[in-house]
């Protein structure tokens, strides 16, 4: 269900909420099919950065953005069809959100909104996505039940299945594991590893070990900037930046 991974290039990205500067010039390159983890303390601008990748930043009242984000070489802020961009760049939010409709309708929502008709083909696609999100076995007998009745962990995997349903080139996961248990987290991490190279994954996480387990590269954000990017092993073994060292040693944040 995944087509081709696309590269992501962020250059000089700045963002303001009213007068407060949330991003102060972010530069970040993610190769096609890579997994990149972004770590850093709260208020570092990680979520704001994620919202810019699919221009969900457009919907935030009072948020002003400058700079450039390119997905697969195309400048996203120059795109006219935002909906198409959002189908190319999927997002999974920190807290699980099952849309108030049946499980199957959740997974077919994005294709339907893009013009696909209900039918066996769409159902097949939904099954694939649910399998990919390791949710199929648990929900296959209750596809017509309301999604909001699922458990938190199930809803989060549903959100991942939903994000896969529109065949994204980039998948953004914003602290996907904060509301779910370690076992489910481990299962999802397996899925992400399996998808490597088919889709580019940008992962914001507070779990340093999660970054270590999954990411090809790891980036450190601090007060609206990316202060360090390295291949993951190097990032953790020999962090160059003083603040990164301090953060990894748990001196703050």
């Amino acid at each position: 269900m995944v087509k081709t991974a696309a590269s992501v290039a962020v250059k000089g990205l700045r963002a303001w909420y009213g007068g407060v500067e949330a991003l102060r010039g972010v530069d970040l390159e993610v190769g096609a099919g890579e997994i990149v983890a972004i770590i850093g303390p709260a208020q570092a601008g990680k979520s704001t950065l994620m919202s810019c990748l699919s221009r969900l930043s457009d919907e935030v009242v009072g948020l002003r953005v400058e700079g450039s984000v390119a997905v697969g070489g195309e400048d996203v802020f120059a795109m006219r069809d935002v909906a198409a961009l959002r189908r190319r760049v999927g997002l999974v939010a920190p807290l699980p959100v099952g849309l108030p409709m049946s499980v199957i309708d959740n997974v077919t929502y994005a294709p339907r909104m893009a013009g696909a008709r209900k039918g066996p083909e769409l159902r097949e696609r939904a099954e694939k996505c649910l399998r990919a999100a390791a949710l199929w076995d648990e929900v296959k007998d209750r596809l017509d039940q309301t999604a909001t009745r699922l458990s938190g962990g199930q809803q989060q995997r549903l959100a991942i299945a939903r994000a896969l349903s529109h065949e994204p080139e980039v998948l953004c996961l914003d602290e996907f594991s904060i509301a779910i248990d370690p076992v489910t987290t481990a299962r999802i991490e397996e899925l992400l590893k399996a998808m490597r190279s088919q889709v580019t994954i940008v992962l914001v996480t507070n779990l340093i070990h999660q970054a270590r387990r999954l990411a090809d590269h790891t980036a450190m954000m601090w007060e609206g900037r990316v202060i360090e990017v390295q291949p993951t092993a190097a990032f953790f073994d020999s962090p160059q930046h003083e603040l990164t060292r301090g953060y990894l040693e748990g001196r703050f944040g």
Partner: peptide, 8 residues
């Protein structure tokens, strides 16, 4: 937000 993120 979830709906917008899905391209609706």
């Amino acid at each position: 937000q979830a709906s917008w993120a899905l391209g609706a």
